[in-house]
């Protein structure tokens, strides 16, 4: 991909707590191209949501971006003024949240909430803006958008609300959408529909998307590439096929093993032992070593980046892929 919409480099987001600085995001480098969907996968607390909020510039105190760069279409976002960031938010970069029951304001009508998203960024006659709202609602598969516009969020179902939220994200035809677990709170059937709509819209408009999730099955369905996050770092990156079929990092292997599937009935699921480490007291060396079956003394030293291609890499001393299958080492 030459046409990168977003490139982050060594991004570090730190939360200053009473007992020290917590590095929720610890040197994340990723990139997304036009029309591409990047799946950002990890367990709770791995820093994937904070990565999303860092990109859109909505990390709340006591959190702050301590280091690194976020280049959005060549413009550096780290250190940008709040006003300039606001002009980008909702306009060039949009975000979809996890819980559709909570993201829409309960006391404002749908049309109010959609119109303000347009009018915050461009001057436009009300009627024209309303027409745009209807079009986008249609696009995300909402029937009778005219009526839906006049309702309050509580009159809509969860799936419907998430469609509205997605419609709001697409209103200004942004270049990048960050979707923070948008299907986690929905039924599986609705989930499939929403994924389908989102994918369709990205292809249609050329919008890049970062799809944050803990669900590998979802990511396999929507993403072009996958980045696996653990303890604030990306431990493995690659195309969907590469990561799902030939995972290198033991953590990715563990995640894949924890997914229930139809052809493994009756066999107990393999679990990853232990819990995600406290980011305030990470083990020295590889952050995963205390839960890893392959760990040895070598893992006391932090593994360096093993690069196959620019967008295929992993951080591990003992990858599941034999060293000779990789073409290059950095």
């Amino acid at each position: 991909m030459t046409d990168k919409v977003l490139v982050t480099k060594d991004l570090e987001t730190v939360f200053s707590m009473r007992d020290g600085d917590a590095k929720a995001v610890n040197g994340v480098s990723l990139s997304v191209g036009r029309g591409e969907v990047l799946g950002l996968v990890g367990e709770s607390g791995s820093g994937k949501s904070v990565t999303g909020f860092s990109i859109i510039g909505l990390v709340d105190a006591p959190g702050r971006i301590a280091k690194g760069s976020i280049k959005f279409q060549g413009t550096e976002l780290v250190g940008m003024s709040e006003n300039d960031l606001r002009a980008l938010r909702g306009n060039r970069i949009a975000m979809i949240f996890q819980d559709p029951m909570m993201t829409l304001n309960p006391v404002l009508r749908i049309d109010t909430q959609m119109l303000e998203a347009i009018l915050a960024h461009r001057k436009m006659p009300r009627a024209q803006a309303l027409a745009r709202c209807r079009d986008v609602l249609n696009l995300v598969g909402i029937a009778a958008p005219e009526e839906r516009l006049k309702t309050y969020p509580h009159e809509l179902s969860g799936g419907m609300r998430q469609r509205v939220a997605i419609a709001i994200a697409f209103l200004n035809e942004p270049d990048l959408i960050i979707a923070d677990e948008p299907t986690t709170a929905l039924d599986v059937t609705i989930q499939a529909q929403i994924i389908h709509e989102a994918q369709k819209l990205c292809r249609l408009t050329g919008t890049a998307m970062i799809w944050i999730t803990h669900d590998l099955a979802v990511v396999a369905g929507i993403a072009d590439r996958i980045a696996v996050m653990y303890a604030g770092r990306i431990v493995e990156q690659g195309t969907v096929d590469e990561v799902i079929d030939t995972p290198a990092h033991p953590y990715t292997v563990g995640l894949l093993g924890s997914v229930p599937s139809a052809n493994k009935r009756g066999v107990p699921l393999r679990q990853i032992p232990g819990m995600t480490p406290n980011i305030l007291s990470l083990p020295v060396g590889c952050p995963f070593r205390e839960r890893c079956s392959r760990a040895d003394e070598m893992c006391q030293v932090e593994p360096s980046r093993h690069v196959v291609r620019e967008d295929r890499d992993w951080f591990c001393h003992h990858p599941h892929i034999a060293p000779d299958t990789s073409e290059a080492t950095q």
């Binding site: 859109i56 606001r86 980008l88 938010r89 909702g90 949240f97 819980d99 909570m102 829409l104």
Partner: peptide, 17 residues
Amino acid sequence: QQDYIKFARAKGLSTTR
């Protein structure tokens, strides 16, 4: 702290609004 406030901010609305 509510999500709808964060979502409103993510829409790029002014603080006043």
